[in-house]
Design a protein around this nucleic acid. Structure first.
Lengths: 250, 250
DNA sequence: GATATTTTGATTGATTTTGACCGATAATGG
DNA sequence: CCATTATCGGTCAAAATCAATCAAAATATC
């Protein structure tokens, strides 16, 4: 059995169970303990798993396998649909802005359908994923915010003022009729606001769980920017009904 | 059997299974080991498959980067030592530049020993890790290079020209007495060169396996920038002996 | 038909992978 | 707390695989 084959088996086992014992892998692969140890080491080095005493455990990574992240798992299918719906709005040869946030990240796999895109993003995580998918990507310079891995600060504001986008896709921490789209960090809000101003067309992507959530800084009202979401309840639909531009991804 | 015919068989086998062993191909094609090796080489050159030890693998998997992962796995302990040695050179309150590359990445865990650092890096991967370790980080804007996830291009050059660093830590693809420090991509070489120019003190970090490796673009000679490496063989030590600034991390 | 070019298969030594071993370290159970 | 057991990381030699070379065979060219 080849190295790659073994390592795939290990990762598959990890997907099924969340934890795998080294001893259980021996009969499963036919390899020796030493070899399997080395495999676990290799896989840990490329962040495919986390070694623990006696075996290995799934790494909860935003970037690698969103399916495995328990928090994200709840709305994962919604987010995939929203991502696909949003990506379908893009046309070939466009310049688009991608905000930070997990929902936006789900757009990326669908972007490869389009030719000759240029993506500008303020998210380091998104940038890394865009590179994986071989999408032309540009990062404006800025201070890195540790918690969200987004670029913020005066520098990026100044840079973005010189750019213009065909479309901007933004994440949000909450939306409601009264408060509009809101996010906790004023610096991130400032970037979102600027991205909207510099774009021909902007969209906010959010799964329905963010409905009626309100954070500190508003970056837009519901009239200003259409919402792409899905599976709204009847009450929610009625509340939002006058904002006609809302797209429901099914 | 014709060359074309053989290669077709290999690709068909790869479609069925995800991995194919070189030995299994011998009875399947009737060709010799050498010939099949050449076939695999040819097919890899036109990106139809990915060679692995003992056979070949489908190339379709977007997320997998076995080439990069395996590279990272090698020399891991050397790199840790080099990273620690390099990090010890840093003083509190300094502004430092971190190049892209796995070796440089190993510095990051040791940087948290220092207070009030500001790190500028052109690597998205490094940026992400720096955020994990809560290090003040700034990213200069630039085009994202997919293969290495490094920022390159005129924009980043222009930005860096306005900055000045206490220290710069650079990776390299190879070093030798005659060719100096070299790297395959001229654009990355330009950034390294500029980082050196803008720094009070620069260092190149490299494990000893890069000795006598030569790539396309030189970004510095061995006199200009000291090398931080380890475990040099006697011959290598003698060859490098006149470059007194070389540090061996033990 | 003679000669040049390409393809092939065998051989070589170098490199990588592997499994066994051992002392060090960590978890377990009294 | 200590003793016992299991797991860990490192080293080593054997085995497998690799890249490079070269001469024979096949093919192409004139």
């Amino acid at each position: 059995m080849l190295t790659e084959e073994r390592q795939q088996i290990i990762l598959e086992q990890l997907k099924i169970q969340n934890i795998v014992k080294l001893h259980d892998l021996i009969p499963l692969t036919g390899a020796s303990e030493s070899t399997l140890r080395r495999d676990l080491q290799d896989l840990e080095n490329c962040h495919k798993l986390l070694r623990i005493h006696g075996g290995a455990q799934n790494v909860i990574s935003l970037h690698e396998e969103p399916a495995l992240s328990q928090k994200a798992a709840v709305h994962i299918n919604e987010k995939k649909m929203i991502g696909q719906t949003a990506a379908n709005l893009v046309r070939n040869h466009e310049v688009i802005f991608l905000d930070s946030g997990t929902t936006i990240q789900f757009m990326i796999p669908y972007l490869i359908e389009h030719n000759d895109l240029l993506v500008i993003t303020n998210s380091v995580d998104n940038a890394s994923m865009l590179a994986d998918y071989n999408v032309n990507t540009f990062l404006p310079g800025g201070k890195l915010k540790s918690s969200t891995k987004a670029l913020v600060g005066a520098n990026i504001i100044q840079t973005l003022e010189n750019y213009h986008f065909d479309r901007a896709f933004l994440g949000t921490n909450g939306f409601s009729v009264e408060a509009g789209y809101t996010t906790p960090d004023p610096e991130e809000a400032a970037i979102k606001r600027l991205a909207i101003a510099q774009s021909n067309q902007s969209y906010v992507l959010s799964d329905s769980s963010k409905f009626s959530q309100v954070s500190f800084s508003r970056f837009a009202t519901l009239d200003e920017v259409p919402l792409i979401t899905n599976k709204l309840s009847e009450n929610e639909s009625i509340a939002l009904s006058k904002y006609t531009k809302i797209t429901e991804a099914i």
